[in-house]
Design a protein around this nucleic acid. Structure first.
Lengths: 138, 138
DNA sequence: TCTTGAAGCTCTAGTGACTAGAGCAGCTAC
DNA sequence: GTAGCTGCTCTAGTCACTAGAGCTTCAAGA
């Protein structure tokens, strides 16, 4: 049996966050001891580990809810889990593409100024004027 | 003189968002006509264009507030504007690096499943177990 | 047994950057 | 005049937490 603090330390998820996950129905309500403190078993630990890992991979809590719902009848809805994972991958790839455009734009803007104070400020001008941009960010 | 709707159409910023920017003091309060409707001049249009472009480039409203404050004494604080732009660039590069790790991890997970329903579901298993991961995402 | 301090509890409210909706008033074109 | 679009203010909701108040419980040491 683990306390919420032990769970937190082991998984790296903060205590208020664990309580929040419980509140929104993502984590099942654990049992309580006589003093009304939460006591978790290995299943609680595993569930939180799953959530943590999926969050680190960028899945939304909504996605994770679907994935965990599926977990009850594993293998059955493998197609659905796969679909969610693939859509998340597409999502990540899209974000990378957009961020790369941003980076090159910011790079261009940054090179306009040498950081001196000689009244150069093309940085601000460039920020104000999209028409100077090469790409189609945003 | 532009109405809020015209401003919105021209800049691509939604009407409630424009009002929100005004509320938090990012956009100066425009004049009103007799019917209490907002009326903007070219300066309002330019300011909103600046905000839109900077938002598209991923700057926070807090950053934009600093940049616009600087705009009053342009050239003077070029170093500060440059600093903010460069820090934003570093930020974006860092996000790209992290997302690339995520993508490769998701790719690995996705290949575990062919999308069939033959009880394979290694996708869910992989999501639950960080130790299977190659990289150090998150 | 008592005390101390860490850890736990519930509840409310705040974050950033909007978004949605209610219930009105004004504006424009026919 | 009237229809319907646009505008107004205000409140509340979104996501994924985070912070704080004010209390109780637990574990370890004296």
């Amino acid at each position: 049996m683990f306390s919420i603090g032990q769970l937190s330390k082991t998984t790296g998820v903060k205590v208020p966050t664990i309580r929040y996950y419980e509140e929104i129905g993502l984590l099942p309500q654990p049992g309580r001891n006589v003093g009304n403190q939460r006591r978790y078993g290995q299943d609680g630990m595993d569930a939180l580990g799953f959530i943590k890992h999926a969050r680190d991979l960028g899945f939304s809590l909504e996605d994770i809810k679907s994935l965990m719902g599926l977990d009850g009848h594993l293998g059955d809805d493998c197609a659905e889990a796969d679909r969610i994972a693939r859509s998340q991958l597409a999502n990540v790839r899209d974000r990378i593409r957009k961020l790369e455009q941003l980076a090159s734009e910011l790079e261009r803007i940054s090179t306009l100024c040498d950081g001196g104070n000689g009244g150069c400020c093309k940085v601000l001008t460039a920020l104000g004027d999209h028409s100077q941009c090469a790409g189609d960010h945003g």
